[in-house]
Amino acid sequence: MRLEWIEDILAVLDTGSLARAADRRFVTQSAFTRRIRMIEDSLGATLFDRSRKPIEALPSVRALEPDLRDAAARLVALRAGLGGGVGSAIAFACQHAITATVSPRIVAALTEQDNLSVRVRSGNRDECLMMLLSGEVDFALMYESPAARTAAIPRAFESVLLDTERLVPVCMPALRAAANGPVVPIVSYPAEVFLGRVFALGLAPRLPEGITTLSKAETALTLAAYRYAISGIGVAWLPLSLVQDALDKEELCLLEDILPASELDLVMIWLPEPRQPQVQRIRQGLLDSLYPDAGSKRRPDLLADAVQPVDRTEQG
C-alpha cells in the first residue's frame, strides 16, 4: 500500500464524503473519485458503499481503520527520516517527445545536487497526469497548446510555464514541392490524442485555401512520426526541438513558409505538497537554475479534469 492511498482512504473515513475528502487532498472530486477507483482496482476489492448517501466504508475497511492510521503515521515518520539521511530520490514524468528533448537537461541539473537520484517516467499526457494523482511522480513536464486547451478545473494542480515550443511542418527535401498542394501527403496523429487535437483545432483550419491533406501514415508516437518524415513518407508536424538537428543537417526541410505551425507551451505540473518540503526545495532549485523567470509565471493550473480514462494509444 502506498502512503498516498492510505491517506486517500482515511480522508473519506474522516469526512464521510468524496467531495470533502477531495478538498482535503487538494484535488477535484472527479479526479479523487478516479483515484479511489484506481486504488480499488489495484487492491482487487471494493472499499466503499457508493449506494449510500453519504458514502460509507465497508465493514472490512472500518475494522482496519486503526491499522491504516498506524501505518500512515509510521510511513510519514519513515519518509521524513529517510529524507534527512544520505541520498534522496525524485521522480518526474514527461510526454515521450519531451523525454527525448527536454528531459536530459532536467536530469543533468537535478543530478548535480549531491546524493540525488532521478527516476524518469515517460507516457502520454493523460498517463503523466495519472502518475501525479497516484503519487508515482513528484512533478510532470508536458506540452499544452493555446489552440487546444482543455477545460478548466481549479485547485487540482499547480504549474509554471517553463518555455515555449513550436510545432512545425517538416518533410524530406524531395517532398517540398508536394507541400504546395493541392493534395499534401502527411503523417497524421489520431484525432483523440493531444497532437491530433492540436492539428484538428489549431492547424487544419489554417491550411492555405485550396490545399487538402492525405494521411499516408498515422501514428500516436511523436518519435515514430519523426522517423516517417525523415523516410520521405509525408509532411509531419513535430516539435522544433525534436527536428532541429535534422534541419541543420538538411535531412528535413522546414515548411513554415507554406503550411501553418502552432505554438506549444512547456509546463511543469505538480500537486500541492504541504508535507513534502524537500521535494518543493528540489523543484524550486531546478526552476531557479534552468528557468529563473518561471516563478513569475506561476499560476493555479486549470487542467484537472483533463484526465480522461487513460488512452494507452496516445504517445505524443
Rank of each mutant, 00 (worst) to 15 (best):
P182Q: 06
L286V: 06
I36V: 13
D288A: 13
A140G: 15
I211A: 05
A151F: 12
I153E: 13
Y143W: 14
D49E: 14
L240R: 14
L75H: 04
E144Y: 07
L141P: 01
V12R: 08
P185F: 00
A100I: 03
V120D: 00
S159M: 13
I186H: 07
W270E: 00
L195W: 06
G196H: 08
L116D: 01
A304S: 10
A152Q: 13
L141D: 00
G210V: 08
T222N: 06
D8M: 10
V27Q: 06
R74D: 11
E56F: 10
V61D: 04
C253V: 15
V168K: 06
D265R: 15
L247C: 05
A93V: 05
T150K: 13
A156K: 05
V184N: 03
V310C: 02
A177E: 14
P190F: 13
R155H: 14
L43H: 08
C128E: 02
S17H: 08
E65F: 14
A200Y: 12
R176A: 14
R125F: 08
P154H: 09
L132D: 00
E7K: 12
E165G: 04
V307H: 09
P104G: 03
S117E: 08
C171D: 03
G232Q: 06
R121K: 09
S88V: 05
V12A: 04
Q113W: 04
P54I: 09
I6P: 03
V76P: 02
D293Q: 13
V102Q: 05
A177T: 14
P54K: 10
G81H: 07
V187H: 06
I39P: 02
P59Y: 02
E256W: 05
P239V: 09
L68V: 08
L161M: 11
A93Q: 04
L58W: 12
L223P: 01
R227E: 11
S42E: 14
P300Q: 10
A174N: 09
S30M: 02
A11M: 10
V120L: 12
R62S: 12
T150E: 12
R50D: 07
S42W: 11
L110Y: 07
T213M: 09
P185T: 02
I98L: 15
L266G: 02
G87M: 00
P173I: 03
V267C: 10
L221H: 15
V187D: 00
S241L: 09
T99Y: 13
W270Y: 15
R125Y: 10
V235H: 06
A108L: 07
Q278C: 00
V184M: 03
D248T: 14
G85E: 13
V198D: 01
L43C: 06
